[in-house]
Design a protein around this nucleic acid. Sequence first.
DNA 1: GGAACTCGCCAC
DNA 2: AAACGTGGCGAGTTCC
Length: 469
Amino acid sequence: MIIQPNKPQAQQLIHEGLLALSEATRQGMLIDVVYCTKINKILNVKISKLEKKFFKSKMGRLWKHIYKTPNINSDDQLRNILYDKLKAKVKKKTESKKPSCDNEALEAAAIDIPELKIFAEYKKLSKVQGTYIQGILKETVNGILHPSFNLHIPVTFRSSSQNINFQNIPNRDAKLKKLVRKAFIPSKGNQLMAADFSGIEVNVGACAHKDPKMLDYCRHPEKNNMHTDMAKQIYMLDQFQKEGAEKTLRKGAKNGYVFPQFYGDYYGNNALSLAHWGDLPQEGRFTKKQGVKLMTGITLGQHFINKGISNYDSFVNHIKAVEEDFWENRFKVYNKWKENNIKDYYKKGHLNMLTGFTCSGLLGPNDINNYPIQGPAFHCLLKTFIKTNKEIKKRGLKSRLIGQIHDELIIDADPSEVETLKTLLRWIACEWLREEWSWIIVPMEIEATVYGIDATWATEPEVTVLRAS
DNA sequence: GGAACTCGCCAC
DNA sequence: AAACGTGGCGAGTTCC
């Protein structure tokens, strides 16, 4: 793969980006080492207890019986015990066609082998301890962690992060999030602050393909919402509220349908995921007892039966029809753009991004349509990061940028500067950026997330949505 | 004894 | 007919 920013503006962005990111690395972020050391010990105890408990179970005893040196961390041993000895049904295979030992496979097997729940808990805590708590302790010098950020690795011209990877700190799992994020603290008397772009990939995508329907969604968020519209279509709902089961279904539409579709997924996988979000079975008949309870009082299972969809296969067909409508009607210009994009790449052998970068090398259809969106979406954050760093210095502010997570920047903020920073960020991200890059033809929106004074990254922040005036 | 690989899992 | 994009890293395992 040949990677080069070819336009001068792209080179400039890389140069200035590296300087700004290096400054954040040198600045570093404070770590509560006392907490990390304490939680590391607690985890040691919890993890070894879980290991002992597991090896006392029926499956654990069999494992110990078969292996002289049983290793709870060995997937090869687990595979042998679970699939060869206990004859668990293989529902999923790995890349190299071996029976899978991942959490999804284990969850399915746990119906017959309950001790696998202890095993899963062991795995989860081991992951947190090994990758995060011990990783942080290993890389922290004098109480400060200095994760670095690369601009020369991802083929999309995004960034990556290492020592530690600051871009995959737990967020979705509330328990893991709290456990790990309690380690991150601001400088004495300061507060952590984050600013992230809302829906940046959707926005940048709209600027690339200029699909009128998508542009409308981006320009009038108060009027229509893409994920709500899709939830209504997918789950065939006329009445909709943004709470309760309907809220979950909207999340399902967003994460189980819309985003995977944009990445190049298809209705078959979507249907599995969408059924899961709606608490419906992924095979066989639907019954009135299954599914989340809707605002109308009936279950999603009953609701689909009423609509003539009484089993999973009909549901899959329904999602297939939704997919056709999605690309043939709703986003037909986007669809056309994808086709032309692929043709264009095969003709030229490379693709150009809105930000002046060129991707060469052997790309597949999904790559061709994703890279031009992923890259420039990150570049919006990078340009914002550079400008914010410059303005902080120019204005003699004491707050400092300390990191970045693709569409989000993190600041160790002086409390007296928080309001100034909000104003500054709103101007840079929502106004200045659009003046710099005329290809941005939709409004930009950022969320400022402010944590308390001396509060950890695990505490409840105050969130403000910032838009152009 | 280290390099390279596989698998799994965390993020966007 | 086939079918999800970008990363880092730990642990086990295999190769040399």
